[in-house]
Nucleic acid binder design. Structure first.
Lengths: 330, 330
DNA sequence: ACAAAAAATGTAATCAATTACATTTTAATT
DNA sequence: AATTAAAATGTAATTGATTACATTTTTTGT
């Protein structure tokens, strides 16, 4: 592998000039520039990024902490991150954490060892051993940490869930089941809050026995639905906190002989690509997944470069998509 | 940030001893080891990985080139890569290439600039400007490059498709549609070959007009199915080259008034998590997606460290999963 | 107690780029 | 032509760890 010194020798100039030709070509005379570029071609020189990163004390790399990369929503967010990162000259290190604190810390430490310049966290944890360590550039996307001052890119989950619940109630449903995410999740709590608000506004009361817990997976949705629908008087609608659990729930409902939406309405959240193609097509909340990623990356870029980001708490718009999994109460 | 020099001063030893305490503790006496470890704790020293990587001339990082990270099958493969990489002490750089040669080359160049030690390629291209450059550690997983000597981790796609076709034929179908991937894909061609073999063995002839092209996406499956089912005499079975296209096809078939599997049988490939939960549950070929990733990573590890891998062409097992999207020809 | 061998530790070069500062060359102004 | 300013280029320090080799200390065997 040719080094900058090889190039400088062949071109008959100093290493500084070679370096400048690459980074600030306008500071180099046309004549030498040509000399250097020819030598670069001749030697097939590629600057050693490792050496450059070491010298400049930055890695041009960021870490993404994601609880599960196989989740279709997260993978879209990551796609958004990756594209923007590439545009801004950053590489993306993948940290699939399975939601494990230990792994999050391992990956977050990469910032301290200068392997990464910043972190995008998609889970609702602070990935540091010491909460006060939260000084490194970090942005929280999707599911934020309540009560921390971490910059965030979020949906207005309260409003979205409220709108969804309103839609369900407007169809005449009064006994509504909930399949929620884990208890410690901020988005879960926000969405529950929105749900309750709509109930209240409609003069309905919240029945905690109608809430089942899932883990955002297909089988967990099926299991929760099974519990809900086995009740002596099952609810006539089920609001799920993501599309996978909704799909699992519908599958289970059909298995148990219920018709969707005739006997029971089911709603999702996220609008993953499968939602539209399911039978029946899923009523859900669509979110601009890629934009979560690109906004988070842009904000992180500002933080890394000590620019004040325009906003430290971005709210992205949602959209209630009414399809055929919801219908009037019979 | 404390450096190794700070630690050495506080511990009253040389930097070499500190370095050794970390990398080869058995070469250091217990007494000094304690001294050094105390100093490390006191200073909260974390070795600068950037400096280490620079000095040792390796990044302990690999790049994964993936055509689309939002594809559920690929994201499982990546999960397998990530887990094994972490176990082996490697970080994973994500290269979402959208199948673009230009991006593949950009990412593959990271090996030349020592940003990465090796490459796992999930698409069927050679990611080098010059094919002879293919000397850096690289492993091809999932969809291999025909006629290159790149090490691979693959499915026996010919056998899998053959088995699937056999199943369809055994149900009495003779007019079978194919929804295939793009023409240049190796897995597409292999699967087509397997399909043809089963036809031949059953004494049936292959009808090129029954083959539609998709791009592995849900809508492309729906469109292809629409073409197939609009024929004066539509096929009674459709074999799709992945689950998404199969789901898209079933959705379209239902929309057009066909019943699956009564009027038409549909099969997928991959056994993504949604396959089981779809209505009807999809007959498909299951693949050990995570193992593609872990095997590829292990092989790459050997290549990077100049160990001869046990095998340079790993074939992974598949499984025909018969569910309810296929049935006897009426 | 001494020599030889083994273990522990230290010194200083090294990796490949960037860049502050010094020096030289060129251009502009009178 | 002389002076000054501006542009171009060069010199050498710097980044933080690793490690070959040199030196010192400890252990072993007699």
């Amino acid at each position: 592998m040719a080094t900058i010194r090889d190039v400088s020798k062949i071109a008959g100039v100093s290493v500084a000039t070679v370096s400048r030709t690459l980074s600030k070509p306008d500071k180099v005379s046309e004549k030498t520039r040509k000399l250097v570029n020819d030598a670069i071609k001749q030697t097939n020189y590629k600057p050693d990024i490792l050496a450059r990163n070491f010298r400049t004390r930055k890695s041009s790399t960021i870490v993404v902490l994601v609880p599960d990369i196989a989740n279709p929503f997260f993978s879209r967010v990551i796609r958004g991150i990756e594209q923007t990162a590439q545009r801004l000259g950053y590489a993306v290190l993948l940290g699939d954490t399975q939601g494990l604190r230990e792994r999050e810390i391992t990956y977050a430490n990469m910032v301290y060892t200068s392997q990464a310049d910043g972190i995008i966290q998609l889970d609702c944890h602070i990935p540091f051993e010491d909460k006060n360590d939260c000084t490194s550039p970090i942005v929280n996307a999707c599911d934020c940490v309540r009560g921390s001052n971490m910059p965030t890119v979020q949906l207005d989950n309260v409003a979205a869930a409220k709108e969804m619940a309103k839609h369900i109630i407007s169809l005449g449903h009064t006994d509504i089941g909930i399949i929620s995410g884990p208890e410690n999740s901020t988005i879960t709590n926000d969405r529950l809050r929105g749900f309750k608000q709509s109930l209240e506004e409609a003069g309905l009361s919240y029945n905690p026995a109608n809430r089942m817990f899932g883990d955002y997976s297909l089988p967990s949705g099926a299991m929760a639905a099974s519990d809900l629908l086995s009740k002596p008087i099952p609810p006539t609608a089920i609001m799920c906190m993501n599309d996978e659990m909704a799909i699992g729930a519908i599958r289970q409902a059909k298995k148990m002989g219920f018709s969707v939406p005739d006997d029971i309405s089911v709603t999702g959240f996220d609008d993953i690509s499968f939602a539209e193609f399911f039978d029946p097509p899923l009523t859900t909340i669509s979110q601009p997944a890629e934009e979560f990623g690109s906004n988070a990356m842009e904000m992180l870029f500002d933080l890394i470069n000590n620019k004040e980001p325009e906003s430290k708490n971005i709210l992205l718009p949602f959209n209630l998509v009414i399809r055929e999994s919801t219908g009037n109460k019979k």
